[in-house]
Simulated scan of single mutants.
Amino acid sequence: MKTIPNLAGVAWRKSSYSDGGEDNCVEVADGFPGMVPVRDSKNPTGAVLLFPAAAWTGFIGGVKDGWLG
């Protein structure tokens, strides 16, 4: 069984890949070994997606390489 981390009091930071506008902001939280919590900054009490750290690293690598738009 997988354990869902307690995200109460987590320090969220905006992704450096967000455009800085009010409509396109993704926030991530650090300090969770093996996973990366991600949320929509427009809805801070909404759902949080948990990505395996390796998958998040691959996604960010793809963004940096320009294959996502």
Rank of each mutant, 00 (worst) to 15 (best):
A53V: 03
P52D: 03
S15V: 07
A11C: 05
S41M: 08
V36P: 05
P52S: 00
W67E: 11
M1A: 12
P44F: 10
P52V: 00
K14G: 12
G66Y: 06
M35V: 14
V36N: 07
G58I: 06
G69I: 13
A54H: 09
F32D: 01
G9W: 02
V48Q: 02
D23P: 01
G46D: 06
K42Q: 13
A8P: 04
R39W: 09
G20L: 06
A55D: 07
K14D: 13
G61A: 12
V28T: 14
N43K: 15
K64N: 06
P37K: 03
A53N: 02
T3H: 04
L50A: 07
V36K: 10
A55S: 12
T57V: 15
F51Q: 09
F51G: 06
R39P: 07
D65M: 15
G20M: 03
K64H: 08
P52T: 03
A11M: 14
A29E: 05
K2N: 15
N43Y: 13
L49S: 12
S41A: 05
L68T: 14
P44C: 01
G31D: 03
T45C: 11
W12Y: 04
R39I: 06
D40F: 10
G58Q: 08
V28M: 13
D30V: 14
G62A: 09
E22S: 13
G34S: 06
S41W: 12
A55K: 10
P52E: 03
L50Q: 02
G46R: 01
V36Y: 05
V36H: 03
A54W: 04
V38F: 00
E27C: 02
S18H: 02
T3M: 11
T57E: 13
R13H: 11
V28N: 07
S18C: 05
V10A: 14
K2M: 10
V48C: 05
K42V: 07
L7R: 00
S16L: 09
E22G: 15
V28E: 13
F51W: 13
A53M: 06
P44E: 05
L50K: 04
G20K: 09
P44G: 01
T45S: 14
G61I: 05
A47N: 09
A11W: 08
D30Y: 13
T57F: 12
F32H: 03
V36E: 02
L49R: 07
V48N: 03
A47W: 15
M35T: 13
K42H: 09
L68C: 13
P33G: 05
L68N: 14
T45R: 10
L49I: 13
V10M: 07
W56L: 06
G34A: 08
T45I: 08
N6I: 01
A55T: 10
A11R: 14
N24Y: 06
K2L: 13
W12D: 02
G21I: 00
G46A: 12
P37V: 01
D40A: 03
V10F: 01
G20Q: 08
P33E: 05
W56I: 05
A47D: 11
